[in-house]
Simulated scan of single mutants.
Amino acid sequence: MSNYRRARVTGATYFFTVNLRNRSDDLLIREIDLLRWSVRITRERHPFHIDAWVVLPDHMHCMWTLPPGDADFAKRWKSIKFAFAKRLPAIEHRTKNQYRRNERGIWQRRYWEHLIRDDLDYQRHFDYIHYNPLKHGHVQHLADWPYSTFHRAVEMGIYPVDWHTDPLFQSENYGE
């Protein structure tokens, strides 16, 4: 096991990539209402600001800003994943260890997190999140993807509705 340590800075903004265990599944968009509910109830108990979010069939990217004095994004992800999985029938394949631990086999165990360092880092991740449906070939126009805060960003005047500029970095550096 590696000595990986997560950056924990109170009140900071983080970028995340969270994957389904089965990367060929479309569970996240099939069960989008359940996912939204899971996020909503988690935010009621453990507040955070959603800066950007995109849900794709098998994974999602998001940026959150945590409240001052709080760095516990892990508690929030645990709550979201648990609330989502608990309300689905247990039909997925599970390993012996997952049965032993009473775990579901829906999510990859870990997730990618990145502490946002500055305004440029923020903008690049913000753009990356919103560009993702186009990058993966789900749509030809970002405005056609319904599971994204892209629409909110357009309403706020951050993007024009026809925005589609490829971000200035490669996805292999950002958790995919």
Rank of each mutant, 00 (worst) to 15 (best):
Y14C: 02
F15A: 02
F16Q: 04
F16M: 01
T17F: 00
T17M: 07
V18M: 05
L20N: 06
L20F: 09
R21C: 11
R21E: 12
R21S: 15
N22F: 05
N22K: 08
R23L: 12
S24N: 14
D25A: 15
L27I: 12
L28Q: 01
L28H: 03
L28M: 08
I29Y: 03
I29P: 04
E31F: 07
I32C: 08
D33Q: 13
L34V: 14
L34I: 11
L35H: 10
L35T: 11
L35G: 03
W37D: 14
W37G: 13
W37A: 14
V39K: 12
R40I: 09
R40A: 12
T42R: 06
R43P: 04
E44N: 08
R45N: 08
H46R: 14
H46G: 02
P47C: 06
F48I: 07
F48K: 07
H49A: 13
W53H: 10
W53E: 03
W53D: 00
V54A: 03
V55E: 01
V55M: 02
L56R: 01
P57R: 01
P57T: 13
P57M: 04
P57Y: 05
M60G: 02
M60W: 00
H61S: 05
H61R: 03
M63N: 03
M63F: 01
P67W: 09
P67Q: 10
P68Y: 02
D70S: 01
D70L: 08
